[in-house]
Design a binder for these strands. Sequence first.
DNA 1: TGGTTAGTGGAGCGGTGGCTCCATAAACAG
DNA 2: CTGTTTATGGAGCCACCGCTCCACTAACCA
Lengths: 209, 209
Amino acid sequence: MTTKVESQTPRGRGRPRLFDRTAALDRAMRVFWDRGYEGTTFDELITAMGLSPSSFYNAFGNKEALYREAVGAYLTGPGGFFPKALAGEGSARDAFARLMIATAAAYTDDTGPAGCMISLAGLHDAPERADLRDFMREVRGRSLALMVERLDEGVRNGDLPKGTDVAQIADFFETVFRGMAVRARDGADREMLEKTGVMALDAWPGGRA
Amino acid sequence: MTTKVESQTPRGRGRPRLFDRTAALDRAMRVFWDRGYEGTTFDELITAMGLSPSSFYNAFGNKEALYREAVGAYLTGPGGFFPKALAGEGSARDAFARLMIATAAAYTDDTGPAGCMISLAGLHDAPERADLRDFMREVRGRSLALMVERLDEGVRNGDLPKGTDVAQIADFFETVFRGMAVRARDGADREMLEKTGVMALDAWPGGRA
DNA sequence: TGGTTAGTGGAGCGGTGGCTCCATAAACAG
DNA sequence: CTGTTTATGGAGCCACCGCTCCACTAACCA
């Protein structure tokens, strides 16, 4: 057996890792994204990651810790479209229009599983998974917060009238995004999701474009 | 041991059932509704139903067969609000407005688990559950079909212009309903869901009320 | 009254899911 | 070199999951 060091992390004491931790995490993330937490078995994980159980536990702790890391990898990777679309130029409405298109594309991108890793996770777990469920709810709450922030900015910029109920608008779009994730899982294609997203924009306060 | 016959089904040959099959199914349905298929263990089921394993298998076959029966019980029970709201009087838009309010109420009704038993089930299962997943997708498709039907009727009645893309409208509202189920699971209350539902109606073709 | 059919309680089983242990390997510091 | 630290492969463990078996019970029909 040759021993090739592939790890990207800086050398420390002890035997260096023989695998790329970041790449292994990415592969695990995609399995979780496809199957969810409970639907993914330990064997599937270590097979996808190319690891033995001991290497797995040594590097990632346990299944739940890996899952939390995988969620982080999703948010900064495939899920990065969300803050990016919101942060672009133009009015608040422009930002949300971009967000709709980007979401339709991301949820049907065939380089990964259909839908969203965050939207549908931890909704039907046993009580002993309450911690994971709370974690997922918290993560879901972040997109809501991002939208509220962008809407507040829109109010400050005069894109939206002062006194606008931004929470209500954010709630509405949050609901649409979560629903789009379900639809994507059921096989809705990009065009279909885009139409839904564009139609949702018709509910924008003050009327249509 | 006293032997009291509680079964509602007509007497046949052999020893009569000691439990109420319909009531047991209802209890199982609520556990599945709360935890999903994979999140519900066999022991939880028979405990909730008050059955021994043998009685369970004798009466229901196996876990998957019970689940499918439970879905049927949901559709004719707690899920009955959906076709009922659509079928009421008034214009197509009236029907959908009723549907939004009814959905917000149903998804937050505290006599049962939050959300919808159908919307979020079978989305993250292992490949060996592909049959159940297909089943749930098919069941989800029925609400879409109901909405299309009601929208077609609206076109015939002149509530909507001829040539209206009813599939697109149905897709949009389907997405909103699925999203509302996620939001309800995460703790959204009735008022919040109602606001979202009412806002979705602003996207109704032709403008606002 | 006996034969047939169906329901019940409870012991227990095979598979597997998530995890652990241990002997060994390979890097470091001195 | 030696000693320390960390990584690896692989055997194997325990709990639990969904399910089965069997002796027994209680209704029906002739």
